Simulated assay, not measured.
Amino acid sequence: MMSSRDLHSTRLPDGAELPFAIPGAERQADDAFGPRLTLAVGHARQTFRWIPPGHFQMGSPVDEAARGNAEILHEVTLSRGFWLADTACTQALWMAVWPVNPSHFADDPRNPVENVAWHDAQRFIGELNRRLPGVQARLPSEAEWEYACRAGTTTPFSFGTTVSTDEVNYHGAFPYPGGEPGPSRQRPLPVASLPPNAWGLHEMHGNVWEWCEDWYADYPQEPQVDPRGPSFGKMRVLRGGTWSDPARYARSATRSRIEPVYRPRSTGFRLVLGPP
């Protein structure tokens, strides 16, 4: 019998080549989750997972518990694959590029960098691209983020219809329907502390909110190909939920937004390598 990981595998057929390589990133041997790269910046390392092109239903069905009104279900096609970091950007990686650590929880370099505005993330990315020409680092689009978070699933979470605090770092006193109360850690965990989804991505649910590239806007109802959001707006998109939120905010479809100059203690980001 095939496992859920086999059903949603990112592994390439034998002999197949990736559509594009990343200069400066070292190709690692494929593992159970598929192709991977490692980017070295000083002493810091970041693994990236290959996310294949495909189709998915973005948003949530009307009967999903605790859904938001802005989660209109619509078909999205991503015509090109991309390399997505398997964790949020760590403080170690941030400090290898940028001289000041903005994080409140700065006791472990493996912690995700937080207290970061969208503009801060863009400045970091600009400096990374200056140092490593060709990597084409950027933030994921909102569609890319949800597609990768779901990893082929249609349930509220990539882990199924509900989650526990053994899988997701959220405020355990407020579980999702069908789940049990758990501890509230009241802080982010070091990255890769919790199980990955079927595509090898850690903490897509919970831990820290993650900035996306897009300006926030209502979803269209018609099918979309490679959506990037509007060309201007007031607020940027955040995804994933955080350690201090109820579990419902960690759902795959949950959307949040704030102005790009704000630096909440709970906001970080995850990198993409390759062209937009």
Rank of each mutant, 00 (worst) to 15 (best):
T10E: 10
T10M: 08
T10W: 08
L12E: 03
P13F: 15
A16E: 11
I22K: 09
I22W: 05
E26M: 13
R27V: 13
Q28G: 06
A29R: 09
D30W: 07
D31G: 09
F33K: 11
T38L: 14
L39F: 08
A40W: 03
V41W: 00
G42M: 03
G42H: 02
G42N: 09
H43T: 12
H43C: 11
H43R: 14
R45F: 03
R49N: 03
R49T: 13
P52D: 07
P53G: 07
H55M: 12
F56G: 00
M58W: 00
D63S: 14
D63L: 15
E64C: 12
E64Y: 02
A66D: 15
A66N: 15
L73M: 08
L78C: 04
G81P: 06
L84K: 00
D86R: 13
D86K: 04
D86T: 05
T87W: 01
T87Q: 06
A88N: 05
T90D: 05
Q91I: 10
W94H: 10
W94A: 04
V97W: 01
V97N: 01
P99Y: 00
S103N: 02
S103A: 12
S103V: 05
S103Y: 04
N111D: 10
P112D: 04
V116I: 14
W118L: 06
H119P: 02
Q122I: 11
R123W: 03
F124Y: 13
I125Q: 10
G126V: 03
E127Y: 06
L128K: 01
L128E: 05
N129L: 01
R130D: 09
G134H: 13
V135C: 12
L139P: 10
P140V: 07
P140D: 10
E142K: 01
W145R: 00
C149M: 09
R150W: 12
T154Y: 09
P156F: 12
S158D: 12
V163N: 03
G172F: 04
P175H: 00
P175W: 08
Y176D: 06
P177Q: 03
G178I: 12
G178A: 06
G182S: 03
S184F: 15
S184R: 13
S184G: 14
Q186M: 13
P188T: 09
L189D: 11
L189I: 01
V191C: 14
P196I: 03
N197W: 01
A198C: 14
W199N: 10
H202V: 01
E203R: 09
E203N: 13
E203K: 08
M204I: 14
H205F: 05
N207L: 11
W209C: 10
E210D: 04
E210G: 04
D214A: 07
D214L: 05
D218Y: 09
Y219E: 05
E222M: 07
P223N: 00
V225W: 01
D226G: 08
R228A: 15
R228F: 01
G229E: 08
G229T: 01
M235W: 02
R236K: 15
G240K: 02
S244K: 07
D245P: 03
P246I: 11
A247F: 00
A250E: 02
R251Q: 14
S256K: 11
S256A: 15
S256F: 14
E259D: 12
E259M: 07
V261T: 13
P264T: 04
R265N: 15
S266Q: 12
S266H: 08
T267G: 03
R270Y: 02
L271V: 04
V272G: 02
L273T: 08
G274R: 06
P276N: 11
